[in-house]
Amino acid sequence: MVARQLDAQIAAHFEVGRRLRVLDVGLGHGTQALRLARAGHRVTGLESDPERLAQVESAVSAEPEGIRERFRTLAAGGQDTGAHFLPGTFDLVLCHDALPLETDPSTTLAGLARVLDSGGLLSLVVANSLAAPIPHARAGRWDAALAEFDGRDRPLLGAAELESLLERIGTPVENWFGVQIFAAEDDPADDERLLAVEERAGRTEPYRRLAGRLHLCAVRG
């Protein structure tokens, strides 16, 4: 679902055929980064977890030479962008499930915005802390659901809070979507009916505000 939403935003934001300079912060399994490299974009991936980084590098090594040449990795995290890149280095920055919400996300986001070129696109996927009790309650994990309510002394970040934060650092949100509204983690990813429902709900009020994760697409001013 994130890939569908991201591709739509890229198509709307950049001219057809443009080869983008992409930074993926927190590679994870490298799914989005590899997909974009295969599409012809030049990708730099940051990953602080040595095991995950090794897995991605192994996957990249199995790709054709042209893709390997367009893909480089660094052992670093989202807080390290200032040490590695000049301002305006990238056209597209991905930060999917890698933003440290429990500490100070504004510092990390400011660093990501800094390395975006003017007019560049930031794709941010985060857990929706306002909806944290919902998946536990849906699965009958009542103690865990109550614990989420009891932990409300930690910062709460939903769509409105993130939009305000991004506005303050000069990268206002252009579009945002809900992800995992009705779908569970173990639902088949290729079920077109499920994807159709998720896609519709992910851009429709009030359903998108109840999503387990939020996908925000912001533009560097």
Rank of each mutant, 00 (worst) to 15 (best):
A113N: 04
L92Y: 00
A218V: 09
C95S: 10
G140H: 03
E102H: 10
V125M: 15
A11Q: 13
L86S: 11
R19W: 12
A196V: 05
V173E: 03
R70Y: 02
G170D: 04
L101E: 03
F71Y: 15
E205A: 14
Q9P: 08
G170A: 07
H215Q: 14
A131C: 08
R220C: 08
A113H: 08
R220F: 05
L99G: 03
L162H: 01
G151A: 15
A39T: 05
L92P: 01
D91A: 02
D80Y: 03
R35E: 11
W142R: 05
S61C: 04
P133E: 08
R114W: 03
E167M: 09
N128W: 07
V179P: 01
A59D: 15
A75K: 11
D117C: 07
R209Y: 12
A137D: 13
D97P: 02
D7M: 10
A139Y: 01
R38D: 11
A39W: 08
R70V: 07
E161M: 10
L121P: 01
R141H: 14
T89N: 10
E15T: 13
E57L: 00
V16M: 10
L6Q: 03
A98S: 15
R68M: 12
L162I: 09
D187I: 10
A211H: 00
G111N: 12
S58A: 15
L74W: 05
E57F: 01
L156P: 02
